[in-house]
Amino acid sequence: MSFVRLSKTVEYMYKLHHRNFKLYFKPIKAPLYEPIVKNSIHWVGHATVVINLNNKIIVTDPVTSLNLGELKRLVKPSLNLSSINIDYIVLSHGHMDHMNYSTLRKINKSAIVIAPIYLNIPLKILGFKNIVLLNHAEIYSDRHIKIKALKANHDGRRYPWGAKAESNSYIIESSLKKIFFAGDTALTDAYKDLIADVAIMPVGCYKPDEFQEMHCSPEQSFKMFKMTKAKLMIPIHYKTYILAQDKDEDTVNTLNRINDGSIKIIDIGQTVKL
């Protein structure tokens, strides 16, 4: 590692931990608690959403911990995932803010888990029995749902020193509705022309600019959404933890500035009917 790169890393880590340290003197904010209804999307926080399609419950990247290591949650999770009967768990990749072991331990183990191919061993250790590993372009389907994996522009390995691992995005489809869940991704044209009713898109963790090698800015997220044929964009992956140097208020201001009516900006705990 060069001196310049090392210096930037030290500066980034100092700013990150300084911002998080100040949170320990503030209470965690309360979310909204709107109910989950048939054919809806409910944002629990970060990249965790509960999707109800014909009363089948799909949860994406379940993370409800009040702390990720030393990083304190900004807003409490709107839902105790262990209190609901989850039919499907959709994991985009193995990063700790997307595949949270303490959360997954509490979820019903009868759920069908859809995940990238390298996550088999940790999922088995966590006690899940119905594990489906998908490579890019592969599909899981049953009589209730169809889930197709797409390639996200993101390094999915759990630790920086680990072997390179892929990240997935997903198209989640019932007989009536189709949802695109991007997971975590930098700018890519891989989603061009895909059809969906709603695109759930990440908009946080993009500063400093080097982070855009693996994450997208709000403008880039909107650009990818516009490449698709989705009708509505719901921004996620912000407002929950401080993981980088971007600020949520700036992200919201940017989303409001670029919104042409197709972005549905919601708060944690809010439900959007499909």
Rank of each mutant, 00 (worst) to 15 (best):
M1C: 07
F3W: 11
V4P: 11
M13R: 10
P35E: 08
I36E: 02
N39S: 02
H42N: 09
W43S: 02
W43R: 00
N52I: 04
L53M: 12
V59C: 11
V59K: 05
P62K: 00
P62Y: 05
G69N: 03
R73Y: 00
L79I: 12
L81A: 04
I84A: 08
V90I: 13
H93L: 03
H98N: 15
N100T: 00
Y101D: 08
T103A: 04
T103I: 03
V113M: 06
I121S: 11
I125V: 13
I125K: 12
K129F: 08
I139M: 09
D142T: 12
R143K: 14
K151L: 09
R157V: 03
R158Q: 05
R158E: 03
Y159A: 05
Y159P: 10
P160S: 08
A165K: 15
E173R: 14
S175R: 13
I179H: 01
G183Q: 04
G183L: 03
T188S: 15
D193C: 07
C205H: 15
C216W: 06
C216A: 14
Y241E: 00
D248F: 01
T251N: 05
T251H: 07
T254R: 06
T254Q: 02
L255M: 02
S262L: 09
I265P: 09
D267N: 13
G269N: 01
G269K: 01
L274M: 10
